[in-house]
């Protein structure tokens, strides 16, 4: 069989009425990629656009509400509790006001929450009830397009929360160094890692009860990852455990940048997230393939 040598479909001769379909018009062209051509069509942005459209037309208020959570924490804990605490010593030995200590942690948490919400509950629903992906994968999109598109959407949300919160930090004078500018890309990386990992985990979930496990892990991680006090208060064994968890790396990375305690040690945190991104993407793509291209 020769490649693409079939004749163009014969055309009814009548003029194009409203009811006839003009089959000779544009046909989609798929650029065959070098990377995983059977899984990726290079069109993740279409998946992201779809998400934006839904958010823009239906629930942007819900999205905005996510912005206020870290601000409320900052006011209650940073300003309120902070007036009792005074200053805290960071892991690099610097003395900083309590609000400036917890603000970067809350920033990392905001990125995590935005990304995790979009990549877990949102994806879980679409996967199991909306049949959305089934429709998407009947088009030229591949599973990697879908995964990347959803993750980019989660990133955008993470970035929105982070940007808003950084402005609040600036207003309260909690960005202690110019390095704080780099906190934005750092937050994107954190969101990327949580989103790709979250989506990978979600793809294995079958019921709502299982989804509750995600919250069960997220809450203690939020409370204990050196968010509200330094890691040094824990016994060594607990310190190791917390350092193995992903949020601690985000807290340390962002705190290093906003307080200006920058050093090569920050690269370890970056590396941690890069690995997390790669592992998450690999599992998500594999899993979507197993689920939808069976």
């Amino acid at each position: 069989m020769t490649e693409r040598s079939w004749p163009a479909p014969s055309r009814a001769e009548q003029g194009a009425t409203a009811e006839s379909i003009d089959t000779d018009a544009v046909r989609p062209r798929v650029q065959r990629g070098i990377l995983l051509p059977s899984l990726y069509a290079g069109n993740a942005r279409a998946v992201m656009h779809r998400g934006w459209l839904v958010v823009a037309k239906t629930n942007w208020l819900i999205v905005l509400s996510g912005l206020f959570e870290p601000i409320l924490y900052l006011l209650a804990m940073g300003i309120g509790l902070g007036s009792l605490v005074g200053t805290v010593t960071t892991s690099t030995g610097a003395e900083v006001p309590y609000a400036a200590f917890i603000a970067p942690a809350l920033l990392a948490v905001a990125a995590m929450n935005g990304a995790v919400y979009d990549s877990t509950w949102n994806v879980f629903f679409k996967m199991n009830y909306g049949k959305l992906y089934q429709g998407m994968l009947a088009t030229s999109l591949g599973p990697l397009d879908v995964a990347l598109g959803e993750i980019m959407l989660a990133l955008a949300r993470g970035l929105l929360y982070a940007g808003g919160f950084m402005l609040v930090m600036q207003a309260f004078g909690l960005n202690l160094s110019l390095w704080a500018l780099l906190a934005l890309p750092a937050v994107v990386l954190i969101a990327f890692a949580f989103a790709s990992f979250g989506m990978a985990i979600t793809s294995y979930m079958k019921t709502f009860q299982q989804m509750d496990w995600i919250n069960f892990i997220m809450l203690p991680m939020f409370l204990f990852s050196a968010t509200f006090y330094p890691l040094s208060v824990y016994p060594v064994a607990i310190q190791w455990l917390i350092q193995a968890m992903p949020l601690w790396h985000g807290v340390e990375l962002v705190r290093g940048l906003t307080t200006g305690a920058v050093g090569p040690h920050l690269w370890w945190h970056v590396l941690y997230y890069v690995v997390m991104v790669l592992v998450g993407l690999t599992f998500t793509t594999r899993r979507l393939r197993a689920l939808f291209l069976r």
């Binding site: 069989m1 020769t2 490649e3 693409r4 040598s5 079939w6 046909r27 989609p28 062209r29 798929v30 065959r32 051509p37 059977s38 899984l39 990726y40 069509a41 779809r50 909306g130 049949k131 959305l132 089934q134 429709g135 994968l137 009947a138 088009t139 030229s140 999109l141 591949g142 291209l293």
Partner: peptide, 26 residues
């Protein structure tokens, strides 16, 4: 259309119109 679906999924699907058994409209 002269292509192998195992290796050319996106290319083939770009030329197909699919109406599944159960509606999966958005």
């Amino acid at each position: 259309l002269g292509l192998d679906p195992n290796t050319h999924g996106p290319e083939i699907r770009s030329q197909l119109g699919v109406v599944p058994q159960a509606d999966n409209l958005d």
